[in-house]
Simulated scan of single mutants.
Amino acid sequence: MANSAGSRKRARQAEKRRQHNASLRSMVRTYIKKVIKAIDAGDQSVAAEAFKTAQPVLDSSVNKGIFPKNKIARVKSRLNAKVKAMA
């Protein structure tokens, strides 16, 4: 347990940051699932649109330090390949 005032404040800040990061991480995963759902449905135009809206969200999560750069690059590459394969 945090004893000094400074360590109590740091604990509060860490918890607030953890919850915010969890929210952003969840949002990114939801956008990925929307693209996968559109791909599974077989509608290429919807899948391409979902991927187009997901890309900036994925990129901003990297800039905020939520996910590693290479993980998001890998996810985007795989989703793009699946969308293009539908054509």
Rank of each mutant, 00 (worst) to 15 (best):
V57Y: 05
Q13R: 14
A11L: 10
I66W: 09
D59Q: 10
R8T: 02
L24I: 15
T30S: 12
A81N: 12
G6K: 09
D43W: 00
K84S: 11
G42L: 04
F51N: 14
V62P: 06
A87C: 00
L79S: 03
P56K: 12
R29K: 15
L79F: 01
N63V: 00
N3C: 07
S26A: 13
A85L: 05
V83G: 07
K64D: 04
R78V: 03
A47G: 03
N70M: 10
S45A: 15
K34Q: 14
H20Y: 13
Q55S: 10
D59S: 09
K33H: 04
R29C: 03
A54V: 07
A14F: 02
A50K: 15
I66T: 01
V57I: 15
S61F: 04
I66K: 08
K64G: 08
D59F: 00
A41Y: 05
A41T: 03
N21G: 01
F67P: 12
S61D: 06
K82Y: 07
A54S: 14
A22C: 05
G42H: 01
K34H: 05
Q55M: 10
N3Y: 11
V75Q: 13
R18Y: 08
A14P: 08
A73D: 06
A2C: 06
S4T: 15
A54T: 02
S26Y: 12
R12T: 03
Q19V: 04
R18T: 06
K76D: 05
K84E: 13
F51Q: 13
I32E: 08
F51D: 01
K64Y: 07
N21M: 09
A81L: 08
F67W: 12
A48H: 05
K69F: 06
Q55I: 07
A81S: 14
L24H: 11
R17E: 10
A22V: 01
M1E: 06
R78E: 05
A41Q: 10
A5I: 08
A54E: 10
V46E: 14
N3Q: 14
H20P: 00
S7T: 13
A87W: 02
G42S: 05
A87K: 11
R8L: 01
I32R: 13
M86Q: 01
R74Q: 08
V83D: 03
V46T: 15
K16F: 05
K84P: 02
I72A: 00
S26F: 00
A22W: 03
D59K: 11
R78H: 10
S7A: 15
V28P: 02
I32M: 07
N63H: 13
V57D: 04
A50V: 04
Q19T: 09
K16E: 09
A41M: 02
L24E: 06
S77P: 10
A54F: 08
K33Y: 02
A47P: 11
L24C: 11
K69A: 11
D59I: 10
R8N: 06
L58Q: 11
A41I: 01
T30E: 13
K9N: 13
R17N: 04
K37S: 11
F67T: 05
E15Q: 14
G6S: 12
V62R: 09
L79Q: 03
S77H: 07
R18G: 03
Y31K: 15
R10I: 02
S60D: 09
K64E: 04
